[in-house]
Amino acid sequence: MEYFLQNFINALQWGSFYALIALGYSMVYSILMLFNFAHGDIFMIGAYIGFCIASLFILLFGGAAPGWLVLILTIIVSMFLTSLLGVLIEKIGYRPLRNAPRASAAITGLMIGIILETSNIAIFGTKRIAFPQLVETVTYNISGVFITNKKIIIVAISLFLMAGLHFFIEKTKWGMAMRAMSYDFLTVPLMGISLNVIAPLTFAIGSALAAAAGILYGLAYPVLDPYMGILLGWKAFVAAILGGRGSILGAALAGFLLGFIEIFTAMIFPSTLRDLIAYSIILIILTVRPHGFFGKAHSSSLRL
C-alpha cells in the first residue's frame, strides 16, 4: 500500500509537468490549428530565465527574503518574460506563415526550437547548470511514504495555474473571445475580434505556463541543460494528442494520465521496458479513440 501511494505521489509530480506543457500545445492548436513544435524549447528557455531571475533575486535579497517568496516572485517574473518570448515567436515565426500550408508552420516550429537551443548554448555554454535550491528540502515520512515539501509545492502550484487558466477561459471576456475563435476563426474576426490579438495572447499564456513548468522542473530536477525540452516536449505533445487536440481540460488530464502510465508501468514491469509499454498503451488508446479523450471529430478534418 505504501509502495502504491509512494508511486502515486511520484506520478502526481511527474504528471504536473506534462500537463502544464501539454496545455501550451493544446491552446495554440485550438486557435491556429497548428502545433507549436518549439514549445518544448520554450519550456527550456523558461527554466533558464527562471535560473537567471532566481540568481538575481538571491543576489539582491541575500538571505533576507524567505525562499518561498523568492520562488513565487521568480515564477511570476519568468512567466512574464517568457510570455514576451512567446509573443515574439508568434510574430516572427508564425504570423507570416498563417496562410501557408500547415507543414511549413510545423517546420518553422522545429527551426525555432533549434535556434532557441543553439542560442542558449551561445549564451550559457554547454555546461550543465545547477538550479538554485530556493526552498530547503524537507522530507516527511508518513508511515513509510516519503513526501518532500517540494513535491507538495510543485503539485499545488501546477493545480493553481490550471485552475487559473480554466477561470480565465470560462469567466473572462478574453477567454470568451478565445473560445469563440477556436470555434470559428473565419467568422469571429468579422465581429471585431482580431486574430492578431488572440493568437499572441494564446502564445503568451502557453509560454507562461511552460515557464512555470520549467522553474518547477528546476526545483525537482536541478540540472538544466539546453536540450532538456526536447524529450519532455515530445512527450507532452503526446499528452496533448491524447487529451484531444485543442481541448484544454483534455490536455491537463492527459498530462497527468501520461505521468501515471509511465510511473506505474515502471512499477509493475521491468524498468527497461517502461517507455515501450507506456507508449504502446497510448497507441492502443489512440486506436480506439483517434481524437483523444475530448477532441472533436471535426477538428482533424480541418487541417494537419
Binding site: N7, N10, L231, E262, I263, M267, S271, R274
Partner: peptide
C-alpha cells in the same frame, strides 16, 4: 535524457 527516476 530521462530526468525522473522516482518509480525505479
Amino acid at each position: 535524457k530521462d530526468a525522473d527516476f522516482s518509480s525505479q
